[in-house]
Design a protein around this nucleic acid. Sequence first.
DNA 1: TTCAGTGCAAAAACTTTGCAGGAGG
DNA 2: CCTCCTGCAAAGTTTTTGCACTGAA
Lengths: 151, 151
Amino acid sequence: MTFEEIKNTFIAYLKDNAHRITNERFLILNAALNMEEHFDADELYLKMKNDYLNVSRATVYKTLELMSECEILTKHNFKGDRTRYETKIGRKPHYHLICVNCNKIIEFEYPQIEKIQDKICKDNNFKMVDHTLQVFAKCNDEKTCKNNSGN
Amino acid sequence: MTFEEIKNTFIAYLKDNAHRITNERFLILNAALNMEEHFDADELYLKMKNDYLNVSRATVYKTLELMSECEILTKHNFKGDRTRYETKIGRKPHYHLICVNCNKIIEFEYPQIEKIQDKICKDNNFKMVDHTLQVFAKCNDEKTCKNNSGN
DNA sequence: TTCAGTGCAAAAACTTTGCAGGAGG
DNA sequence: CCTCCTGCAAAGTTTTTGCACTGAA
């Protein structure tokens, strides 16, 4: 999916909801799509600041929320950390395996899980909006993981 | 699993980690185990205050953290809300279906998911510590859910 | 006796809000 | 031209920390 296509999705959402089309929103959209996976609002704000893209922190927070609403981004909360975002649009459903020591995150796909989630929603007469599955574990990567001696 | 058994698990954990055995910790343990599912630190603090069990907010936060470390409780973060806890010890693994409008939470078990998680850990050479799966959806309960007209 | 735990308040961390000025429709 | 958006700072929320005192070992 190209940036232009995603941008058009965003524009459509903004128009449908009587939000205005502003340059700041596109700057943030572009910056967010260029982030590594799983960034948070403040990281994006600082990255943009570093790139001389001066938008305010408040605008970053608000725009990330808009981008979640129209499903360009997904929100995640990994164990009490601040809210983290990742690109959702154009990606297959996937899940996260997280090392509790070094915070390394491994993504995995598992279509069977989608089927289970669909079934659960159907059984309970719910309409799915989003989902997240996090497996917290200890990795065995001696190079990056400091606390794995006692596994 | 009885309260005494859980208490002994807690005592064993405290001793193993050179933490002291205090009355406050048992008050909080008891209060936490008597909470409805999915309480947060402040709710527990206020509940205890209301019951004339005077422990400080800071102690509640610290003790809940200890109880998570020794797997008496599990932490959950539902979409940027404050950290919520639920009893883990003596319970089967289970997952959460959450209404994004009225915040109703339905728990479900699905042993197949445990198998998938075990496989993922094994494939990546990780040792599982904890897991959480949340399905965000819209319910169709007209009585309790205000915003379900547009589903 | 010693040092971790407690309670309190203050600080920190993260996010939202109010307001004045500016720009989109 | 009327609002909504922006940027800033201030306030709000949730959680952690510093410190003096207390109490477990």
